[in-house]
Every structure is written in structure tokens, then in C-alpha cells.
Design a protein around this nucleic acid. Structure first.
Lengths: 115, 115
DNA sequence: CTATCATATGAATATAAATTCATATGAAAG
DNA sequence: CTTTCATATGAATTTATATTCATATGATAG
């Protein structure tokens, strides 16, 4: 006389209790989505070494300036990079040390599993 | 008599020297792409607390079993989760402690910036 | 002011990725 | 073996996202 199908009420209650609310989970997804693109990863990695202007990044990545600008905007909105006007050029730099640690953790996951 | 436009040869050489190769950057992007989806983030968070079978996850997230299975496959391919047969059910669990740390870093970035 | 360099941005297009639907597989029970 | 529960999967559809193209803005030099 137990449950008809498969019952998980007990575990689910426990799991629900510690789940962050949907808004936060959504924000987390949105944040990682930003790291989930090769172009943006390459931009961020470039800025690990030095601050750079837009055309330098475009030259480095061999991509159109427009494409880079679009991606930089996304990175700026997420507060992962910031920029400063230097005359005609716009110099971009990392805005948050978490960028390094997040990418670092991803790097570890990849390299440790390549055994 | 300097360069015609804007010259960044020096910095770019330095930046190029420490850039990982494209394959790794691509893999990094692919890895973070997996975290960049609310459904997958919610699945991973659920598994923080307890291992769960597919139908439990579907019930928890109020989504179709099929959608969950598709996402679990992606998580499995990335070696972020693993599973074990328990009779008719399939029990999923976290396969890698990096999952916690990667999500944790993202969480910190979000909450510290909400000042 | 006008021309030029550096960057940003809107619209259009191309591409990818999530969800659904229908159905297949697989295990256990009767 | 047949039915049922649990899960997986392929195809189709929808939705999101990256890049390109054309153009606008903004600053400096002449």
C-alpha cells in the first residue's frame, strides 16, 4: 500500500530547502553563459596579461572590430571588464578578480580530467 | 615617422606568449557553456544536496522527463555528473568537486557585486 | 570645420542550442 | 511473454546568440 509510482517526497523536501531562489539561479546561468563563448574567453584571457584597446584585441584575435565591440559590451554589462578613455582609444581591463578564479577552476577541471 | 595607425606589436607579442592554444580556449568555452543554462544549473544545485533519479529531478524542476534526460546527457558528457542503475531507476550524482567550486565562484561574483 | 582614426551600435543574417513530441529501450512484475 | 514504469533518444520546432554590414558617435589633428 505504498505510493503508486515512484515516491521522492522526502528527498525533494530536503533538496528544495537548500535551493537558492530562481532569480539567483537564473543570474548564475546568465553569468556562466558569458564565459561560455570562445571569443569572450579569449578576450578575457588576453586581459589577464595586459590591459588592451579594442583594435589591439581585434588584431590579436583576427576578428572584426565590430564583433569585438559587441562582445566587450556584454562583458562590461556583466561587470567582468571595465574601460577607460585614452584619447581616441578605449582601454579595457579586467574589472573583477573572480574572472581569474572562475576560469582557473574551469581550467583545472579540464586538465585534471585529461588523464 | 612612427606607424601609420595605432601600433600594438609590443604588447600583443607579450599577450600572445601566455595565451593557451585555441583548442584549450575552445574547451573552456564549451565547459562554461554547460553552466550557462538555468536548467542545468538547477540540476547541478539539486545534486549538491543529494543524488537523485531522473523523475525526481523532473518533479523538482517541474519539467518534462525528456528535457531533463537531454540535459543530463550533456552533463554526463562533460563529466560533471555520473549515474548508476538502481533497478528501473537511474540515479545521478555529481562526478566532480569542481562543480561546487566553479558555481561557488560565480555565486561570489554575483553576491559581492550586489552592494 | 573637415578629415581621419577609434569605437559603438542597430538591423539583418546565420548558427546553435533548448524544449517538446513521439517513440524506443530496458528492467521488473505479474 | 506481456504490461508497466523509468529513462533515453531522434526529429522538429522554437528561441537565443554571434557575427557581419552599414553607419553613427566621439575625439584629435591639420
Amino acid at each position: 500500500m505504498s505510493a503508486k509510482k515512484h515516491d521522492h517526497a522526502a528527498v525533494l523536501a530536503q533538496v528544495r530547502a537548500q535551493m537558492p531562489d530562481d532569480a539567483l539561479l537564473c543570474d548564475l546561468g546568465d553569468l556562466f553563459k558569458i564565459f561560455g563563448d570562445t571569443t569572450r574567453i579569449r578576450i578575457l584571457y588576453s586581459l589577464f596579461e595586459s590591459e588592451l584597446c579594442v583594435c589591439a584585441i581585434a588584431e590579436l584575435l583576427q576578428m572584426e572590430q565590430s564583433a569585438i565591440s559587441h562582445q566587450l559590451k556584454i562583458l562590461r554589462n556583466a561587470k567582468l571588464v571595465d574601460c577607460r578613455r585614452d584619447g581616441k582609444t578605449n582601454t579595457y581591463f579586467l574589472a573583477d578578480e573572480h574572472v581569474r578564479s572562475i576560469i582557473g577552476q574551469g581550467y583545472e577541471h579540464l586538465t585534471e580530467d585529461e588523464r
